[in-house]
Design a protein around this nucleic acid. Structure first.
Lengths: 367, 367
DNA sequence: AATTGGTTCTGAACCGTTACGGTCACTTCA
DNA sequence: TGAAGTGACCGTAACGGTTCAGAACCAATT
């Protein structure tokens, strides 16, 4: 066999064409447009490719030429692995993955460590579009994404006016939950929320910080609460609101402890997520507080674990949110951009909310 | 302002260089090698870039030139979204994501619908390497990955001799579990396993099919069982083994029903995954069988839900598996390839296994 | 005055492919 | 018989960067 053994460089489409004595176009067509050349030649091309160890057209070179990467990027601005620990994030991912596989598109998880301000990963991502999921509105990664000349859809973010958006009415949903509690008779409540900004502030939250929160979702949920309770005659500035940077059960526990220590008289603990609420339940149990008899606890999200626990919460369609984001991004119909999609939520009244212990029911019917 | 408004095409590095009257090299250096040009010029470049709306070097073009994509591909050969529904897969993903973010690398989820034989997604993926997680050994997507000239690590797959591998000793682990059951006195058992090949076969499995199973993991777990029970004098070919294509609780329920209908006398139900075992628990409850008094049930994986249920199972370090796979892939030290990593497992004896009801303990100590 | 060294910038080659607009030989049909 | 059509293949020009070996310049040293 005269097969040259000095082939250090792997075969390319050009070298294959040279070997065959045909043009590069023809080799390209053998892979991409079988109808553009005779079956015999095509077979000959493919056989020679195998013989030379040519693995087929290089995906990156193809992407450069066709201006298509065949993938969408997902920006989470959390340690990437966080996405796999939070049930709501997992649901979102599943929905997004669903939309991607329908379109035959890849899904690139972009590493965006919130600690370092390293935006290079966003610049390096070879994608046809971005989905940005619940990052602070002042996040440099978000800014970097918006500078990229590709379609983007933001999720659980404020409407930017320039890119598609998917979300829910966080404020309205929380307002509804608050009204439920108010109608039960709760006036003296405590609140536990997730991180409000990029800086860690594990403790009480001033009204200013609530207002200036960089996480759209948290800001709106708090604002819904504030509005409802203010309308009910409660001085919102006196309500203890505790923030936790890390989002896990332990945070819910310690935050609940902090609120209950600050005001043992509260009758309800409103949590901005189910995870935090589940933690609060544990702290309540530790203190011997019976839920809902001694203390009402509510969550937000409607994750499975919450359902099992019978938690009073707001269910939001996390999977649908992911799917909607994917569909919006992959829908080539550019006309109507930017679009804004609001998904509906549902108030789930579980076994963790009831009238406060001392409350007389009649009080709400009297003059 | 003389700013030309007929800029249809977005700015490129070349157009920016032309506008500035410098070479392309200089513009490139402004982004990639700040020390290679004077600070003033660099600022001028960056300012002009902003003015022209130049978003920085195109990632795809850069990848083509540098031969680095900054991402690794993950092949699952399951509907992509499945990865987010199976706790073990989620754990693996988390570990892999951990390794990726440590390296600042993206993680591309490659869509590989098992239904269609469409391998194009593998060809299109612009990645520096692949992780292949638990696909059948005859999967065309796997073959396509192996043809790509990039490093690959397979997980829960047979050792291919040519690429890195991460896994556990499935056979040994299951052998150990079987010995536990044998020592308790179980001889008449039933088995529930996950899909053994790409074709759907929801029902009993012949010994041939067990042997020829295309899923390495399942094949080895069954083989570990067969070996242990054969050694204990049990005719393995008479043991009912039921297969389910879909991996979820409902499959576990229906499979358990099928086994129990076939042989109501079995004293233990060995499931090849915790998910299936949890389903079997539900079916047992439905039939009024008390676990472990009337029926022993075991799982495999050691997911959190199993722990909560007190399931007897084999715990495997799913997160570590993902992390190891990522580390192997991202470790540039090419020398020692291919490498093979076996992680250790742990037999968890929970509350779902006990001696069979009729068994007299003494029997195992007599002559 | 010649050499050395350092900084700043350039020219040209190269990465591997596909899009576009042909050419050319060979039917087909009036 | 000539015009029009068809199938098979090709040449060229991008696509948007990075890289490396120098060139040009200036200051400091021999």
């Amino acid at each position: 066999m005269a097969r040259s053994m000095h082939v250090r460089r792997p075969a390319t489409l050009a070298s294959l064409a040279a070997e065959l004595g045909v043009s590069r176009t023809t080799v390209s067509n053998a892979y991409n447009r079988p109808d553009q050349l005779s079956p015999e030649l095509r077979r000959r091309v493919l056989d020679t490719a195998r013989r030379l160890g040519y693995p087929g057209p290089d995906p990156v070179a193809r992407s450069l030429r066709t201006r298509k990467a065949g993938a969408v990027g997902l920006l989470l601005t959390e340690n990437l692995s966080y996405a796999f620990r939070d049930p709501a994030a997992i649901g979102f991912l599943e929905g997004l993955a669903l939309a991607c596989e329908d379109a035959g598109t890849g899904l690139l998880l972009v590493p965006a460590n919130p600690e370092r301000e390293d935006v290079a990963s966003v610049h390096r991502a070879g994608v046809d579009g971005f989905v940005v999921y619940s990052v602070p509105d002042d996040d440099p990664h978000l800014a970097a994404v918006l500078e990229r000349p590709v379609p983007t859809v933001v999720c659980d973010q404020p409407d930017m006016g320039t890119v598609d958006r998917v979300g829910i009415d966080d404020k309205g949903a929380m307002y509804g939950l608050a009204q439920h509690l108010i109608s039960l008779g709760h006036r003296r409540v405590g609140v536990i929320c997730m991180r409000l900004a990029r800086d860690r502030n594990d403790g009480f939250v001033t009204p200013e910080r609530q207002h200036a929160a960089h996480f759209h979702v948290q800001r709106n949920r708090l604002s819904g609460l504030a509005e409802a309770f203010s309308e009910a005659g409660v001085d919102w500035s006196r309500i203890p609101v505790v923030e936790r940077f890390d989002h896990n059960i332990a945070s819910g526990e310690s935050a609940a402890a902090q609120v209950l220590d600050a005001d043992p008289q509260i009758t309800a603990l409103i949590c901005c997520s189910d995870i935090l609420a589940l933690g609060a339940m544990q702290e309540a149990a530790r203190r011997g507080l019976r839920v809902p008899h001694d203390l009402t606890i509510t969550g937000f999200d409607g994750i499975r674990e919450a359902e099992q626990a019978g938690l009073t919460t707001v269910r939001q369609p996390v999977l649908e949110k992911g799917r909607a984001a994917g569909k919006l991004l992959l829908d080539t119909n550019e006309r109507a951009r930017p679009r804004s999609v609001n998904l509906s939520t549902e108030l789930i009244i579980g076994k963790t909310s009831a009238a406060p212990r001392g409350a007389s029911e009649e009080r709400w019917f009297g003059p």
